[in-house]
Design a protein around this nucleic acid. Structure first.
Length: 878
RNA sequence: GCGAGGAUGGCGGAAUUGGUAGACGCGCCAGAUUUAGGAUCUGGUGUCCCUGUGACGUGGGGGUUCGAGUCCCCCUCCUCGUACCA
């Protein structure tokens, strides 16, 4: 009989909840070491958990249980990132209030997580939509405001009229809204901005001290995009204004033969001459109509128009034409460039197209022509720079510019300030008041939280009119909410709400002190628990969430709320779980097989037009041939073999609930950990789940006699463990401990399988050996191990949660006799049993004389014998 | 284009500092048990050749070394990220 996972798992889940087994003490023993292991909390969507969630969550749960068994105070919490657009869109479509949907989804997520047996301290659950939580999100905003890090600005935003809100860049796919596929336009709007750029240097530098994936650190570095160069001031011919540009190549200034402004640059209208005005205006209109998608598509072909106006090159006083072109971005640098076609690919392409002059100022290698030279070399055509290498020339030019007031050294960042307001209902209200003069001030701290008003109609008001400023839902809130009397003066509240990122920027702090209504966090508790020792979550948050959270953390550090400069010491991304590998063959309209290499280049549309059909094949219908798969029945027909991202439309989604129902939570946990390395992307396999299920049943039968349904008679507390049993046990202790420390859960499980395979051969088994094994396996499969522990020990020893992790003792795995490998010229020729610590000369002699070695060595000259102690002997012969 | 990571049996994946390639699991093959199927248990399973104490074998090519999946150089392919950032 299979082990009764369903009752067993429910029994222990109930036990853990009732006994608060995994409660973290509010005043933990300060002498014990602490360990803070954190999951990225989920957005509780209507779809429920997918198999990606339990992957990272199981990994952290194993660590949490392992650390507890090793005597650590462990903080392992869970909560909900519950504000955001999906709940609001769903609300709009169905008329249900987002609060209702959100509560329902949270309840579902909580019960799903509890059904997997995660050891969270549920008394510390946080919810970003809870006023008691967002009170402190608003409080943090107030600190930002007071430090001048929050400001209102007219900025170009992604406005989606159909949804009635601005969208973040990541909420837009191919120029359309991610949700609904509605068109998105750029338009200027007055928005709250956070001055993350003020922290650019610290966000960049402090990356070095973090134990994070190198790729993630690199992405953040690229995102911050620090570059060193100079700001150069150009006079404009016939105008008083100065045109400032940023360049990383001040050394090429003598080669600047024209200037380019972004079409949105504020000086464009002013400097354009009447002769060119019509052309310029029409170009600007054309560009503004282009969506982001069109701009990318037209990437290669540069366009622009001449303004009719000239700038003066400050180093040689030459007049150079000023153009506008959309290859210059208003959002980077000063929105204007000096173009140096000889040393810049983009400028070169533009200069060629519009026949603008090209002057080389760095000597290219011989035979180099027809393109820009961006490498190092000697400065030419550059007056006082001539003969200098690029770096020297840069320095000298910057010095010259500074001495003559023509420019200065400058560090520029790609990072832009954070657009922090949304025209939505379902978000944190700003703790901000507006007076009639357009001045803003904060609400009194004692008035926090500013709660969301109850509203009948929280829908955004779609609008196509460009002229009217869109009105967020909160502008239709009851008058009593909208207007506030402060010190006898009437203010109106801010109608925008905060973006979804706000709540997730600091939730890891709130878990430490979740019910504190006097402060965001108690300083003593903060000092004890911070940093987060291990943070596990998806790589999709590599930049935004992790950068925003680091930014807020640094601000909180500056105002003295936290004591560490960085929140997350070690970060790991779990890899994506793909759908089951699919084998696909193709047939044409006449039902003839088509080899995959003939159809792989076709688009879905072309295939449909030609009547080509996809045929899903079973694993057994295909054969490997070279580096690809073919039909077993016709080897000339290639087959496509791939794993795809799980998606509803593909129909390859695995629901964790189904796995739990069929195989149990322990099987789900163990399978997800056994699939492969945590960080790797890997395909799901139903037969793999069955394999784990078989293993769990083997574990059950190792303890439980199928006939009597009680513990085997040959398992007893009176038996002394023999050497073999101690060796196998301690090898397992060693391997499992090391592997958990290094997050190599797949190989830890493999070690447990080896233990069970060995243990099944034993005639009589001491209880002590099995007890230690159960503790080792407990973090992975907590339900079955607790159940077996209870059946083995009764109530005498408490539960596994009360135990201590087994101590590895090297003496049990030391063996004298080992198998030495004997090689001739690096090829294995013989294996001999001999003492492990044998003397070099003795093992050499033994190697030469054992087995067929004398025969193989006949007529050969031994030139050298290499001995690797305890491993092998390599005899080098000529 | 640029940046990062990767390529090991039919499949997922193992392999301290260079030292027995393929642990463990899946699949497959054979046997046991069973009326049969399923489940379970035992054994086998990289490729090639009739064979062996054989040869070959970690994407391809070259190198270093007594010895390379591991180190160095060149190339191919895949995945992820990014995209006119001056």
């Amino acid at each position: 009989m299979a082990y009764p996972f369903s009752e067993t798992e429910k029994k222990w889940q109930r036990y853990w909840l009732e006994h608060k087994t995994f409660k973290t003490e509010d005043k933990p023993d300060p002498k014990r070491p602490k360990y803070y292991v954190l999951d990225m909390f989920p957005y509780p969507s209507g779809a429920g958990l997918h198999v990606g969630h339990p992957e990272g969550y199981t990994a952290t749960d194993i660590i949490a249980r392992y650390k507890r068994l090793n005597g650590f105070n462990v903080l392992h919490p869970m909560g909900w990132d519950a504000f955001g657009l999906p709940a609001e869109q769903y609300a709009i479509e169905t008329g249900t209030h987002p609060r209702v949907t959100t509560e329902k989804n949270i309840d579902r997520f909580r019960s799903q997580l509890q059904a997997i047996g995660f050891s969270y301290d549920w008394d510390r659950e946080v919810n970003t939509t809870d006023p008691a939580y967002y009170k402190w999100t608003q409080w943090i905003f107030m600190q930002l405001y007071k430090k001048g890090l929050a400001y209102l600005a007219d900025v170009p935003v992604n406005w989606c009229p159909a949804l009635g809100t601005v969208l973040a860049n990541e909420e837009i796919i191919d120029g359309k809204s991610e949700r609904g596929g509605y068109p998105v336009y750029r338009r200027p709007m007055r928005q709250w901005m956070l001055k993350i750029t003020a922290y650019a240097e610290r966000l960049l530098n402090d990356l070095d001290e973090l134990d994070w994936p190198e790729s993630t650190k690199e992405m953040q570095r690229n995102w911050i995009g620090r570059s060193e160069g100079a700001e150069v001031r150009f006079k404009i011919d016939g105008h008083d204004e100065i045109l400032e540009v940023f360049t990383t190549r001040p050394d090429t200034l003598f080669g600047a033969t024209y200037m380019v402004l972004a079409p949105e640059h504020p000086l464009v209208h002013h400097i354009t001459t009447d002769a060119h005005r019509a052309e310029v205006e029409s170009y600007i209109r054309e560009v503004s109509r282009k969506s982001d998608l069109e701009r990318t598509e037209l990437e290669k072909d540069k366009t622009g128009v001449f303004t009719g106006c000239y700038a003066i090159n400050p180093v040689n006083n030459k007049k150079i034409p000023i153009w506008i072109a959309d290859y210059v971005l208003i959002t980077y640098g000063t929105g204007a460039i000096m173009a140096v076609p000889a040393q810049d690919d983009r400028d070169y392409a533009f200069a060629k197209k519009y026949a603008l002059p090209i002057i080389r100022t760095v000597q290219p290698p011989e035979d180099f022509e027809g393109k820009a030279y961006t490498g190092d070399g000697i400065a030419i055509n550059s007056s006082f720079l001539n003969g200098l290498k690029v770096n020297e020339a840069k320095e000298k030019m910057i010095q010259y510019l500074e001495e003559n007031g023509l420019g200065k050294r400058k560090i520029n960042y790609k990072l832009r300030d954070w657009l922090f307001s949304r025209q939505r209902y379902w978000g944190e209200p700003f703790p901000v008041l507006h007076d009639e003069e357009g001045q803003t001030c904060l609400v009194d701290e004692t008035d926090l939280p500013v709660t969301l008003p109850e509203m009948e109609d929280f829908k955004p008001r779609p609008s196509d009119k460009d002229e009217t400023e869109p009105q967020p839902p909160l502008s239709r809130a009851p008058e009593s909410w909208k207007y506030v009397n402060k010190g006898g003066k009437i203010y109106r509240r801010e109608y925008n709400t905060m973006p979804q990122w706000a709540g997730s920027c600091w939730y890891y702090l709130r878990y430490i002190d979740p019910h504190n209504d006097k402060a965001l966090i108690d300083p003593d508790k903060e000092k004890y628990w911070m940093n987060v020792d291990l943070y596990v979550g998806g790589a999709e948050h590599s930049v935004l969430h992790l950068l925003y959270a680091r930014f807020w953390h640094k601000v909180l550090y500056d105002v003295g709320v936290v004591s560490t400069r960085e929140p997350f010491k070690k970060l790991v991304h779990q890899g994506m779980i793909l759908g089951e590998t699919e084998y696909t063959a193709y047939k044409d309209a006449q039902d003839n097989w088509l080899s995959f290499d003939k159809v792989s280049a076709l688009s879905a549309k072309e295939m449909e037009e030609q009547g080509i059909k996809r045929i899903r094949l079973d694993e057994h219908q295909v054969t490997k041939s070279g580096d690809h798969f073919v039909l077993t029945e016709d080897n000339s027909i290639r087959v496509d073999a791939r794993s795809f991202k799980m998606s509803k439309s593909r129909g390859n989604v695995i629901n964790p609930d189904d796995i739990i129902k069929q195989y149990g939570a322990d099987a789900l946990r163990m399978y997800e950990m056994f699939m492969g390395p945590l960080e790797a992307m890997k395909p799901w396999s139903m037969t793999g789940v069955e394999g784990i299920n078989r293993f769990l049943n083997r574990v059950w039968r190792l303890f439980i006699d199928e006939n009597t349904q009680s513990v085997h008679a040959h398992i007893s507390g009176d038996i002394q463990a023999n050497n073999d049993q101690l060796r196998v046990l301690h090898q397992t202790i060693k391997k499992v401990s090391e592997d958990i420390e290094n997050l190599r859960f797949n190989t830890a499980i493999s070690a447990m399988m080896i233990f069970v395979n060995e243990a099944n051969k034993w005639q009589r088994i001491p209880v002590g050996v099995l007890n230690e094994f159960l503790i080792l396996m407990n973090p992975f499969a907590p339900h079955i191990t607790e159940e077996l522990w209870q059946r083995l020990n009764g109530a005498s020893k408490g539960t596994i949660a009360d135990q201590h992790w087994p101590v590895f003792e090297a003496r049990y795995i030391e063996i004298n006799e080992i198998e030495w490998v004997i090689q001739i010229n690096g090829k294995i020729r013989e294996k001999i049993k001999a003492p492990k610590n044998m003397e070099r000369t003795a093992i050499e002699k033994l190697a030469r004389e054992s087995g067929r070695m004398p025969e193989l060595l006949t007529g050969k000259t031994i030139r050298k014998i290499i001995v690797v102690p305890g491993k092998l002997v390599n005899i080098v012969v000529s």
